[in-house]
Amino acid sequence: MSVITPIGTLYRGGEGMWTWVLHRITGVSVFFFLLVHVLDTALVRVSPEAYDLIIATYKTPIVNVLEVGLVGAVLYHALNGLRVILIDFWKRGPRYQRQMTWVIAAIWFALMLPGTFFMMKHTIEAMFGSTS
């Protein structure tokens, strides 16, 4: 059985729908992180000790991995957001929306591969010894 994608929408079935689902999930996740992030930064108004204590949790291996996930989510949302903007404003946007999906996927991997390594360099060294 083949799935028939109705013509006239970018949003029902296929890549167009999944890029939208991911855009929504990453948008919500980043929003909730931002609420927490403003609260933790607000501790600079309490005392240097309070702030340094909360920032220390960001330096632990588990939160370090979560941070990589956050950066990946923001990067996807940003790239796909630009794709949505091009679909809306660029004359050929709707026609090239699928190609643009593969372009943003390529950019995402190209940035996340080295990005993940450098974000986790300290954690990797702390756990497995020096990398150099």
Binding site: Y51, I55, G115, M119, H122
Partner: peptide, 17 residues
């Protein structure tokens, strides 16, 4: 994100100072 997580030392160098 690049400044805070990647540039010289990344998150490890962030503190009150």
């Amino acid at each position: 994100l690049v400044i805070m997580n990647l540039l010289d030392g990344g998150v490890q160098r962030i503190n009150f100072a």
